[in-house]
Design a protein around this nucleic acid. Structure first.
Lengths: 334, 334
DNA sequence: CTGTTAGCGCGTTCAT
DNA sequence: ATGAACGCGCTAACAG
């Protein structure tokens, strides 16, 4: 015998409608607390819960949120930045209301089968995505009318819901600060991990704007997104060009690379060349001397993304919104 | 206008049945390649994919696999052991066939709402679980007839599908090896992270059996599952009791703790006291001297679990099976 | 290959 | 609070 609504209704001596009303706590149906208790008891006894597929078919709600990412889940969690975002997501999603479905999308150009199942097949109520994503896929999402929020990403050519740090203002202010401290020769280091990532443009741009304003020459050096490669490159650059008054970076792997290079070449120089990282991964504060940084509450990205998404699941007509998270400049020993 | 099967049928000038047959590649229905191509083209144009809820309602297949864990996703991935298992899961699951749904289950005693939705509400075809799990929940899973495999866990009081390393044989053989090398005084260190975890019993037991056979005294010391706490404890123990000929452990956090303690007290002792870890996390091989270990292909646990699960999704009547993964003894410099 | 029929389990409405 | 009726979008079975 299948444990269906009808079965529970029979066992409890009520009608199927009543079972639904009890399970869904339908406020319109006034049900005596006795009957409700009885139904709950029977449901509990048989481990009944409404069939999600049947329910979704009629309500259009699956109670699933899709997390779209490239590569593998392990890769996502190996990246402290994205891991932190997901920590925020998990914290602020009401786990009693939604489940997280991980949808890999290896081929950026073309949607995977699992993407099609989830999106075109409507098996999620909303999407949280790590950018970038091809237009063809974003369009599919819109065509299906599924709310979607991009985390740590911004589209330049289209309006989407995006949550990301206020990159420009952050480096602008940090550079201003350094200039105010009397630094003249300030370098900015960046490394391109994701080619079309907006971060690659905004972070250097804020720095450059501040330098321009101060009549200083902006020197933006491309290194590597990996710490050890950056270190090697910086060893050469320092040898050739000497040390600047200050160094800013576009990310903390680069920060660590530069830090290690200085430490290896001339430890005492760490007292002179100011170093300000970006993101403020935990390792920065643990160094000696402790590294200064533009601090981002990374998990806030996840939390804000959930907020935006929930609002749009409730009301799909809400217009796209870009949410910028403010950062704070944390000056330590460098 | 909704993009339904009917709509696609009209656009392609065929019957709804044909659309289903094409989408599902139904072998019984012989469809001309022309018609099939036409249907696919239209489906592609409108981004059509069968509604998963409707499909699941009638087929009973959701194409979702539930991953059940305690605490948070981040906690799971912070644990290199479980992260590695999931890497294996993700690799061997055909990502084009199944999605992974993460179902947290904070309260062990009582199923969470999301657990109820997924299990009682049948929104997953199968379950991969990190043990332990309360009987009440395991029973619910069985009552719903959903195949379930436990990873790195074994129930003593009930028969379930479980995949775990061959703990007893592993420590038995390693101890035999040490005894064969002439070691007399061999300690076994364990720390209890999960109280009712079978690993806590099997690993010491294999060691003890080998010691007994050789007529040697088994010395099983309880330390901490954390590296730094274990280190502190071992510093005291070494100071009191001196160094043994060899040390075996129940896990690599403990291994590292013991290693660091010896290194701090008397580095040259690392040449004398043999140390054999368990699991062989990457950090062991990177030490100097490199630490020996019982090597487990952790990701194989995930892969085997997927195999077992898939077989049971195909044929739910398959009996519960415990799959033991063999390990290998890797002798390095300790 | 088509069209028809019959559910899948549930939420919703409405008259009772 | 009930019970009947309807439909969600789809699959499966079968007669054409």
């Amino acid at each position: 015998m299948k444990i269906s609504r009808k079965f529970i209704a029979e066992q409890a001596g009520v009608s199927p409608t009543t079972v639904s009303d009890v399970m869904n706590r339908n406020p319109k149906a006034r049900i005596s607390s006795e009957v409700a208790a009885k139904v709950r008891e029977i449901a509990e006894k048989y481990g009944y819960s409404p069939d999600q597929s049947a329910r979704a078919l009629v309500t259009g709600r699956t109670y699933n949120i899709g997390i779209i990412y490239r590569e593998t889940i392990a890769t996502v969690f190996d990246d402290p930045f994205r891991a932190s975002i997901l920590r925020g997501v998990e914290e602020s999603i009401d786990e009693n209301a939604y489940n997280l479905v991980f949808v890999s999308n290896m081929t950026d150009a073309y949607p995977s089968d699992s993407f099609r199942r989830c999106i075109c097949g409507k098996s999620v109520d909303g999407i949280l995505a790590f950018g970038p994503m091809s237009d063809i896929m974003v369009d599919m999402i819109h065509n299906k009318g599924i709310p979607c929020v991009f985390m740590d990403y911004l589209f330049k050519h289209r309006q989407e819901n995006c949550v990301l740090p206020d990159n420009f203002q952050s480096t602008y202010k940090a550079a201003k600060y350094l200039i105010g401290c009397g630094c003249k020769k300030i370098w900015f280091l960046f490394g391109t991990l994701h080619f079309f990532h907006i971060t690659n443009e905004e972070r250097p741009a804020g720095y450059a704007a501040a330098m321009d304003e101060a009549g200083l020459k902006a020197e933006i050096l491309e290194v590597s997104p990996r710490a050890n490669l950056t270190k090697d490159m910086m060893l050469k650059i320092f040898a050739e060009k000497g040390f600047p008054d200050a160094i800013m970076t576009a990310g903390d792997k680069i920060t660590m690379g530069a830090y290690l290079a200085i430490q290896q070449m001339k430890p005492e120089q760490l007292e002179k060349t100011r170093l300000i990282g970006f993101d403020d991964l935990p390792c920065l504060a643990q160094q000696k001397p402790a590294i200064s940084a533009i601090h981002t509450n990374i998990d806030e990205i996840g939390k804000e993304a959930v907020k935006l998404l929930m609002a749009r699941i409730e009301n799909p007509l809400l217009p796209p919104q870009v949410h910028r998270l403010s950062t704070s400049l944390v000056i330590r020993e460098t």
